[in-house]
Design a protein around this nucleic acid. Structure first.
Lengths: 191, 191
DNA sequence: AATAAAAATTGATATAGATCAATTAATCAC
DNA sequence: GTGATTAATTGATCTATATCAATTTTTATT
């Protein structure tokens, strides 16, 4: 694995010692998923924490009607995983699915825990990283609780990363907490 | 300040050295707010990270119609603060307001930062603490995106801490992302 | 390229919850 | 305690978005 990957993922927040870098190199493994392949099943355990090298993945739950409700996407450069389960070591409430052929690097829970035991300075990364994730989630929460479908759509269009233009728009609709029909109608208003 | 307070807030995740305990003691200060007093204004800077000794506080934003949209409450035993601003040192998007007379202990940003410089083992606390907060926020996000008003109401009734029975129910309604009229009607169905 | 499957579009209709409005109940300030 | 605010309730109506349904477009498969 190329070390510069870890520089970009961890180095944003902390300096990585050569020993730690070696440990990371030895602990992360590359994993490939085909499009439409499940990475974590709800009810199963999230065994890995990932960084994405390519492809798009969706984190979702299934509601009472059996519909996917998408909480977020990950793609090149993002962290990925079913954090609830990975953090708590309890069965996941979420599904994590590759929406397109995906290359990820993952570290298992045991190695992840070992990382912090052996290199406690990584807790700084973990704290700042979690803060970033938290701020992102809060900002989605605010959008969903305060904005109309149209506003959410417009705001999303402005910030939509190119990777997400490749996936079926019904997933984008779900992420924006609206039906595909609504998404389509809002789209028609624009272009 | 009594040291056992810090045991309960930090000790859940890490061991606190006597030196660190002394630093905490010297850094946190007690602060009092009357009911309906603003603690952080949107657009202002969140200068403190708090733990609550008594009273109830609400974190909210004001939507386009000028209505408060409540994201969360804090009360005895909870952390409190406008984390977005405190973490980023940018103006807050949120308001934090005491809904009832409140006693908090707070540490300012400078001391907070110094805490981690001098006692980096506290990053472990910060990481695990943020993970807890994150899981809580995700679970609200799931409720709001997947449940009907009635289900959210029922779920909330089951877990509602006694402190929140003391505040006007229009705030609970807002937290559950519904109008006071809806809350009232759902309530009438129950009792 | 032809066929099948999945996704997107478009129209008609339904509905959960919002809004508006009036009344009653609770809390606050003096 | 009394009047004044503020909150809660209840009813009537409205609306954004969901739902249902039919058609077209796109994508995948052989």
């Amino acid at each position: 694995m190329q070390s510069h990957i870890f520089e970009s993922y961890f180095g944003k927040y902390i300096d990585i010692s050569p020993e730690a870098l070696e440990f990371l190199n030895a602990s992360f493994q590359e994993m490939n998923y085909s499009g439409r392949e499940m990475i974590v099943e709800s009810g199963g355990y999230a065994k890995y924490f990932y960084f994405v090298l390519s492809g798009v993945q969706a984190l979702y739950i299934i509601n009472e009607k059996g519909e996917k409700v998408i909480l977020g996407f990950s793609f090149k450069g993002s962290p990925s995983g079913a954090f609830d389960s990975f953090i708590t070591s309890k069965p996941s409430h979420f599904f994590l699915e590759a929406l397109s052929p995906s290359k990820l690097i993952g570290i298992n829970k045991q190695k992840f825990d070992e990382l912090f035991e052996r290199f406690p300075e990584f807790y700084k990364w973990r704290a700042l990283f979690m803060e970033d994730i938290l701020l992102g989630r809060i900002s989605r929460e605010v959008e969903i609780t305060t904005m109309t479908a149209k506003k959410r759509f417009d705001a999303f269009v402005k910030r939509c990363p190119p990777e997400l233009l490749e996936i079926p728009q019904k997933y984008l609709a779900s992420y924006l907490n609206m039906k595909p029909e609504t998404f389509s109608r809002l789209r028609a208003l624009r272009d």
